[in-house]
Design a protein around this nucleic acid. Structure first.
Lengths: 130, 130
DNA sequence: CGGTATCCCTGCGGATACTG
DNA sequence: CAGTATCCGCAGGGATACCG
């Protein structure tokens, strides 16, 4: 594992196009709603309508699209209960749970530095006037 | 700080719309090219043309747009040398450098789990046929 | 070389209606 | 309730041409 990481760092340190694999993986994680959906599934499995209520502003189309992508890559599991009315539950897979940690790292960073960034933004604007 | 983090975790655990601040910060970090640009500036300051050569496939427009955004939020510093022909160098600020760590967390994750994700994707496709 | 401005088109993503 | 299909507006972002 350590060796593995070293390899990645070498790649990043070298040619950027060498991290294509990482870029592809990144595309899975990115996306306007992905992080929010993963977080919404953090504690327990949810039904589609639950998720739509939890994630303010997401359309059903985008929600399903995001869930499909996550399911496709094995991060989310979709369980259908053969009852009427239909009941479908979504849950994070073990793989999906491992994603929470690096996601938190980003969130913590933005949370810790958002004020600094806003301050910098104001200074930038004022400097622009002159 | 620890208290601060606890607060964020509470928010995430609760209403998702409560992490609006985090979402805003996230939007700065996200973006197709942002991570690559930050990585390209990891070691030393770079000129615009250097960056364009390093980051395969980026258009000048997107590169500048991304740099502007990063500069705006104080993550990148832009230095103009009053010479002819013009020379401009971009570098990460101390704040920008702090971003590397969580970014690496994501990259390491994708790097470590990309194979699993591809395997899952194949299984998903095969299951789909039946 | 660094940067802006303009044109233009693809596709993301929202709204709506419909099926099982 | 879960999901698909269709329409469509608009902005992200590429290509090009042009300034300092």
């Amino acid at each position: 594992m350590t060796k593995h990481r070293q390899t990645l760092e070498d790649k990043v340190a070298g040619q950027l196009n060498a991290i294509e694999g990482t870029r592809q993986g990144l595309e899975v994680v990115s996306g306007k709603w992905t992080i929010l959906v993963v977080f919404a599934l953090k504690q327990e499995q949810r039904r589609l309508s639950d998720l739509q209520r939890m994630i303010e502003g997401i359309s059903q189309k985008m929600l399903i699209q995001t869930l499909r992508k996550l399911e496709y890559y094995g991060l989310v599991e979709r369980t259908v209960y053969p009852v009427v009315p239909p009941k479908v539950e979504y849950a994070l897979t073990p793989l999906g749970f491992t994603l929470l940690e690096p996601l938190y790292a980003i969130c913590h960073w933005t949370d810790d530095h958002w004020v600094q960034m806003q301050t910098a933004a104001q200074q930038f604007q004022e400097k622009e006037k002159s």
